[in-house]
Design a protein around this nucleic acid. Sequence first.
DNA 1: TTATTTTATTAAACCGATTTAGTTATCCAG
DNA 2: CTGGATAACTAAATCGGTTTAATAAAATAA
Lengths: 344, 344
Amino acid sequence: MKKKLSIKDIAEQLNVSKTTVSFVLNGKASENGVSQAMQRKVLSYIEKVGYRPNKMAQGLRTGKSKTIGMMVEDISDTFFSTIARKFEEILTTKGYKIIYGSTENNTDVTKELIRVFRNHQVDGYIIAPPPGIEEDIKALIEDGVPVIIFDRPLTELDVDSVLVDNYRGAYKATQHLLANGYKNIVMVTLLSEQTQMRERERGYRQCVEEAGGKPAILKIRYHEKKEKAIADIEQYLKNNRKTDAVFFATNYLAENGLEAIANCKLAIADRIGVVVFDDSNWFRLFKPSITAISQPIEAICTEVTNLLMERLEQKKEIAPKAIVLPTNMIIRNSSVPVKKAGRT
Amino acid sequence: MKKKLSIKDIAEQLNVSKTTVSFVLNGKASENGVSQAMQRKVLSYIEKVGYRPNKMAQGLRTGKSKTIGMMVEDISDTFFSTIARKFEEILTTKGYKIIYGSTENNTDVTKELIRVFRNHQVDGYIIAPPPGIEEDIKALIEDGVPVIIFDRPLTELDVDSVLVDNYRGAYKATQHLLANGYKNIVMVTLLSEQTQMRERERGYRQCVEEAGGKPAILKIRYHEKKEKAIADIEQYLKNNRKTDAVFFATNYLAENGLEAIANCKLAIADRIGVVVFDDSNWFRLFKPSITAISQPIEAICTEVTNLLMERLEQKKEIAPKAIVLPTNMIIRNSSVPVKKAGRT
DNA sequence: TTATTTTATTAAACCGATTTAGTTATCCAG
DNA sequence: CTGGATAACTAAATCGGTTTAATAAAATAA
């Protein structure tokens, strides 16, 4: 019921003008010749009554909302929610809040999200972009709004971006399996045009071919009922009994793929080699536990926020940077005695 | 570079007043006697140029930001991020955006978050409250701000809340284990004063005692390094060889507890009964797969948002509601042949 | 002593919407 | 033909800040 006090109230209580209070509040006191005595007076009163300026009013006048818009495919995905947490941690220290939106990897949803975020006057965007959103992002940039892309590249667009080396990650994953004696590695990936998926595929292909093998790729349609995904993978394994290792291109696929493997009730179940792109806390609990290509989440977040802050504080033109980070291979309790592994 | 257009621009282009445009925009045209012709004219122009009002200005004038503040212990936790996603889904359809903050279950952090949210003029709060925050929340409510509590009760405070029946959930979990022939069930829980944890403990205790057993409770300190948690649980199992089943009070504990069980390398490893409070997609992948008490996430979200919308649209006083939802037991591939289970 | 600069403070415009209180013009009744 | 009601629209106040331009008082220079 006690209504919030405004800068006008403060000014009246102290018998000074709003201007003076505002100057003090914004650290522009000294440069505007407000006396030290006055500064102390205002500051201590502010402190005492716990006054905090209304962001709406500030935002209206300055055009800055102190809010960052974050758009990812799905905030409930562990990868993205972990990142969201880190962003929050870092951006809070800079006085920013985050509003989020899930794109569902859908262009129209994303377009609408961008529109809503614009109306909310967010100061900057952090986006894991869906395909086909180039034009809209270009428009943002041309309007001078800071945009940082991550997780998925946006080819043909010169924009700040932070990505991981999907190609190398997949290559290393495959290499690891080969080095452990596996001969028939299938890659299970998404039936999707996402660039990062194509890169992972390329890494796998390249590695297998260099070793003189023949790539085997199983593509699963996303967002279908997971039972379907499981059945598809199961089918494949049953039809290709020589398969002795699986490289899952995403966590989501591994989740279902592991069930498929279990369902097969094949002897291979505990001998099969498994590597997954993206790590999970649960992987270490399987036996044999699962090796993963993990993304450097911490680094991604600091790079993204650094780029963002740079843009937000930007005085002069700066050229967009494209940062590519290496992945980490987490080798767990490696698979199985190498010699016994193959079933050739 | 093309600067966004304002209602003033629209008005000038159309040779009408801002007032008229505003009335049309807010659906208050007819009740204010704006002619149909004029309404169409404005509407079609708005549509054509894609004008959208500035939320900052609207917010300043109306005091409504169309933003909801969500505070949970940790947004990267699967339970909370899943909920965050659902909230987003529902609230988006009502024209709201969400800003979030992680409380770390810390009172001071939460106090500051509330302060920040207030400055941002959020229209409503959805909070999974840490202990000791009663006063601050009471203050919010007294100021007439909608607050919905979930996940954790705030005893002694009359506020809208949505909780699950932790007591019954834990009771059922324990009962399930007993019914399957397990005799020595240990409950692994957090060393924490959180009410919902105490309820779970109470459910377990009650059930064991009713069956004439002696409760065994192992409390783990949270936020410690997980290696410590694993070691503690491992230690317990080694010191209490009669233990034939474990009831984990949280997902987090199960994650580490399962590793502890594996580390024990005891014969019991594949015979031990395991039930976890909170479900996880990964549980079905273990063998024997893990039974879980799952929270009705969908229902929690609809109840919370319903209460919230009710408050937001509230005309007259309404008494706070406390909603308690039942948990679901997800029995998976049940444990093990009952007879062989015990090791007595 | 007067003119000029510097120091300390403030009045008023502005941001972009909503909303209150009018203002015309038209219509109808008496 | 006049006065009151109604219909259609609008001027101006307002929300709570920031910022520009101005002012009064004190200090320095001429």
